[in-house]
């Protein structure tokens, strides 16, 4: 490998690659948000819902955890979304990653909800709260705090899975890496560069989540849990 030529390729492609970073950030923020908005109600339904609703959630989770993201991307981009008048590859990426993440996030939230002492829900009901009030005022504020460590796992996995949408030509980091590598014949240097970009994004995200975890920690609890 010609070191100078490799460095040249990286430096010349820097603005172009940073554009890709923003596309990746857009994908992951959109997908995590969609996954959160769907994942929370899915978890609540799976814990507190009626039998039929619970079964539907289980089916959803089973489907989206069971089918490869790559298959879902082709299915949605070429099969389902065009029928709904959506032909944006970026949007298809956000939707597929978001629906998949919803399945995983729902199980993170479910675990957190079920780890709370059941007595608190009883106490909320005894005060005359409706189930909706008890879940939104008592259960979720605590369950979501407990979910942050598991959720940061989901974030870092989804961030790297987001590279899969290059197959429908979304111009995120890996798609641009490949085209620069092809043009400059520096695949190894560009792969390393892409790896560094993903690493930095993961690091920033995990730092933010760790900060959030500290900021919302309940008083009287330490790193090791309740005193």
């Amino acid at each position: 490998m010609n070191f100078e030529k490799a460095l040249r390729a990286i430096i010349d492609s820097l603005p172009y690659m940073l554009g890709g970073v923003w596309v990746t950030v857009g994908l992951i923020v959109g997908a995590l948000a969609l996954g959160f908005v769907l994942g929370v109600p899915l978890a609540v339904i799976q814990v507190y819902g009626r039998t039929l609703a619970r079964r539907l959630v289980v089916l959803y989770v089973w489907l989206f955890r069971g089918v490869p993201i790559l298959v879902l991307i082709f299915l949605f981009y070429f099969g389902i979304l065009p029928h709904l008048g959506l032909d944006s590859a970026f949007l298809a990426g956000v939707i597929v990653l978001g629906l998949t993440s919803a399945a995983y996030q729902s199980q993170i939230f479910r675990g957190a909800i079920q780890s709370l002492p059941a007595g608190q829900l009883k106490a909320a009901r005894a005060l005359g709260m409706t189930d909706t009030q008890a879940i939104s005022c008592i259960v979720l504020p605590q369950a979501l705090r407990l979910s942050i460590p598991g959720w940061s796992n989901e974030f870092s996995i989804l961030l790297k899975d987001s590279a899969l949408v290059m197959v429908i030509s979304v111009q995120e980091i890996m798609a641009r890496t490949r085209s620069v590598a092809g043009r400059t014949h520096e695949p190894v240097a560009m792969a390393l560069f892409a790896g560094v970009l993903f690493f930095i994004l993961t690091w920033i995200g995990l730092r933010l989540l760790r900060g959030l975890e500290r900021r919302v920690r309940i008083k009287g609890y330490s790193q090791e849990g309740s005193v």
């Binding site: 608190q120 005894a126 005359g128 409706t130 008592i138 504020p141 605590q142 705090r145 309940i218």
Partner: peptide, 20 residues
């Protein structure tokens, strides 16, 4: 039922305070 429970207070053996 919700209106009734507001008028019937309950104290539990293990307190069941809202931890957050």
């Amino acid at each position: 039922l919700y209106a009734y429970r507001q008028q019937v207070g309950m104290i539990f053996q293990d307190f069941n305070l809202f931890d957050h």
